[in-house]
Simulated assay, not measured.
Amino acid sequence: MTEFGFVLPDEFSHVPLDQTLEFARRADEAGLHSVWKQEASGTNGVATLAAISQCTSTVRIGTGVASVFSRSPSLLGMSAATLQGLSNGRALLGIGVSSPPLVERWHGCEFDHPLRRLRETIEIVRQVTAGGTVEYHGEVFDVGPYTMALETNEDVPVFNAAIGDANRALTGEFADGWLPAFLPRSTFSAFVDDVRESARTAGRDPDEITVAPWIPTAIDDDPDRAERRVRYLLAQEMAMGYNEQLDEHGFGDAPDRAHDLFRDGDREAAVAAISDQMVDELTVSGTESDVRDQFDRYAHGGADLIIAMPSMEASVPELETVVDVLGELSDST
């Protein structure tokens, strides 16, 4: 059975912190599987989720995505264990290598050995959240021995936001879940097979890997308005550097043109540069009936958990519609 999650709108969507918490409460009441808090140069994701843990009861809370460069593995593990305790076992740790611009220009770190750092981070986090003595001697990190003072009840599932081939293989080998974004729907099942085969090769049960794609989503009685929302989101994400990821997927120069135009401040032209093919392959939009059919394709392609990523241009009522429809879809699956 496919479940649904929701990427919480925040200051990048011009949503104040108290409204972000209100969306989490709404998702909780709607019966969604999880809510995910992004983290770039705005609010602290872990701190926000700590507040959300106190105003929700059943929805799971996930970092989406915590950079392995912005916190040490020990601090990531401590943060995950703390969220697990505050939420009575509802925490999910989404991590990733982020990108050179964010790591170097915002955090002031050198973007070196990202995949090795990611692998060692996962292994250290597992020790920390398990409690007891933590000791790890790797190529990037040399930790312990020291004792984890916080009592923990259970491990926190670790989701890897992998993009490239080597990182997807690492996901199958070490992580509990996979958080892909901006993968073409027509080839999505093949990438799922790659991750599960990597798990099988590592001696793991491939079905233990939760496949949880982030899907740009807009739901509206007016399909054209919904499509406009996802086009804007794609243009914005291309400007964040995802255009480079799409070079290998056959979208021509549209991702690069959208990147350049958005970065130059011509957002309308950037939105117009997003091709119909990109909309069809990378997003879900339209009426409730439309999105139900489109989500079904991801479910048939191997998604266990579909995480809807709303447009940063969407209004509060439009965002509320997304949450409510996801709740209805959750009830019907």
Rank of each mutant, 00 (worst) to 15 (best):
G94R: 15
L86R: 01
G89W: 10
L86T: 01
P101C: 11
H113L: 06
V97P: 04
V97W: 04
L86P: 01
V97T: 14
E104P: 02
S87A: 07
G108N: 06
A91Q: 11
S87W: 14
H107I: 02
P100I: 08
G96R: 00
L102Q: 15
R116L: 12
P114Y: 04
G94D: 11
C109K: 15
P101E: 08
S99V: 07
I95H: 13
E110Q: 10
A91P: 02
G85F: 09
E110V: 06
G89T: 11
R105F: 01
A91T: 08
G108D: 01
L92P: 03
R90W: 05
R116W: 09
I95V: 15
G89E: 07
S87F: 09
P100H: 08
H107F: 11
N88E: 12
H107E: 03
S98H: 10
P100S: 12
L102V: 12
S98A: 15
L86W: 13
W106I: 14
R90F: 02
G94Q: 14
S87Y: 14
G108W: 09
G96P: 02
P114D: 04
S99G: 09
R90H: 06
L93D: 08
F111C: 03
P101H: 12
W106E: 02
L93N: 13
G94E: 11
L115S: 05
G108S: 06
N88S: 13
G94M: 11
P101A: 09
S99C: 09
D112V: 06
E104W: 09
C109N: 12
I95C: 04
L92E: 12
S87R: 15
L93T: 00
E104Y: 01
R90D: 03
G108R: 09
L92D: 11
W106P: 00
R90E: 02
P101N: 12
R116D: 04
S99H: 15
R116E: 07
F111V: 02
S98R: 08
F111W: 14
C109V: 04
G108A: 02
